[in-house]
Structure formats: structure tokens, C-alpha cells
Amino acid sequence: MSSRNPAIAATITAERLTEGEAPAPPPSRRRWRFSGLIWWVVFVLGVTYFLTPLWSTLLFSLQAQPFLAAYTNTLNDPQFFKTLTYSFVVGIITTIVSIGLMVPTAFWVRLRVPRLRRLVEFVTLLPFVIPPVILVFGLIRSYGSGILPLTNTDLGSSALLVAAYTVLSFPYMYRAVDTGLRSIDVQSLTEASQSLGAGWPRILWQVILPNLRVALLAGAFLTLAIVVGEFTIATFLARPAFGPYLALIGGNKAYEPAAVSLISFVLTWIAMAVIAYIGRGTRVTVAGAR
């Protein structure tokens, strides 16, 4: 019979322990230990799966002689920084254009025409369905001649590249913005701003955008990652981008592509660290009743 008095119960337990009677852990604790073990096994398998190719790539890149030659060759190649810079600049412009298009669109859809949400989602998913080669041929045919022959100049071709990349960024940017909007009470915040005298530009700029900071950074990062590594569109528009450069050295050199891959990987992690740093301590949920 169990004792209802906690003091007596504690004494009984202590006596049992001194007599060498180890109390069996309750079933729930055993289950917890088992599930914890499974969790660790899955975690180790995942980390191994993720790190093995990186480790192999690193080992392969270090086989170049003299030691670290693949890395010094890559970093000494002016084309490496030139193409990387070009892609980063195009990526940043693309991100700005994409944010400029997607934030007002997602905001308006959520606030005023929520019934169109599925349609807009479908439209933003089209870049997954339409291959980049189709997109770029369409752009070249439309803007290669006629009233707006953009492909005839470097600036025009770069503008087309930004336009094409903006389309490619839609699925990522729209989802990031939509997720961000879902985490705040858009309608109440908008109406509160309006009742205080704010117009639409100010609502977007001062109330909505600051609360989407983390979501926008995530969208921006994904956009940048796509743009920096993109090959097809940049090649067909004859742009000096990082994607075609990677393909070029991949076809001509042995160890350098591995070094470039690892450098890209490091840059990616630096970008993620920047996102984590900028978004630190940010609360995107509306405090209150929710």
C-alpha cells in the first residue's frame, strides 16, 4: 500500500535503497531513454551522410601538389573573384527586385484577396515546372530584336539576367514572405496603423517590413544561393557569372573544382551566420492574445 504522506513515502524509498533494492524506472522513463537513443542514432547517421562528401571533397582537393595548390590557384585566379562579384551583385539586385515585387503582392493577397492565395502560390511555383532553358530562350526571342533589343548590350543582358533570376526566386521569396506574414497579425497591424493616420507605403515600410526581417533574410539568402550557382541562363545570355566559371574550371581542371565547392560552402555558412546574427533576439510574433 502506498503512503499518501510524502515524508513517509520518501522514508520508505530511502530504506529500500539502503537495502539494495533498486527501484525500477517507470515505464514512461524507459520509453524516453529508448526514444532518446533512436534520436541519437538518427542524428549521427544524418551528420555522417552530410559530412562524408565534404570530407571526401576536402581530401581530394588536398591531393594537389604542392600542398593547398588547389586553393591558392583558385584564390589567385582573377576570374574567380570577378565572376563571384558579378554574381553577388546580380544576386543582390535580384533580391531587392524580388522583395519589391513579392512583399506587396503577398501582403495584398493576405489582406484583401485571400481567395487568390492558391492561385498566386501556383504562379510562383511555375519556375519549378518551366525549365530555365525555356525561360532564357523565351527572353532571347522576345528581347533579342524588335522594339526592346536588350541582348544587344551588356547592361541590357544583365537586366534580362536579373529579370530571369527574379522569376526563379519567386517560389522561395513568396514562401518566405508568406510565412513571415503568417507569423504576424497583418490585418490588425495594418488597421492599427491606418487608424493612427498611416498610408499604404508607410504601413509597408515602417510596420510590415521590419516585422518580416528574418523571413526576408531567409528569402534573400535562398535567392542569393540560387543566383550564385545558376548556370543555364547566365551561359545563354553570355554573362560573366560564377555558374559558368564553375562549369569551365570543372571541365578543365582536376582539383580546383573541389576547392571552389568548399569555398562556396564556407561562403554559404558565412551568409547563414550573418542571417542568424542580424535576426538575433527578434520576435516576429505579435505579442498578446495569440
Binding site: 487608424s195 493612427l196 493616420g197 505579435v286 498578446g288 492574445a289
Partner: peptide, 20 residues
């Protein structure tokens, strides 16, 4: 008249304070 030109103050059930 649009809401931002009515000069009417509003308090919401969910507070609607600007989190930023």
C-alpha cells in the same frame, strides 16, 4: 473617407502593438 483620414482612435482585442 479612408481610415487614415478619419482621426478616429481604435483599440483592438489582440492589442495590435507593433512588435518592432
Amino acid at each position: 473617407r479612408s481610415p487614415n483620414k478619419r482621426h478616429v482612435g481604435m483599440v483592438f482585442q489582440s492589442y495590435a502593438l507593433f512588435p518592432n
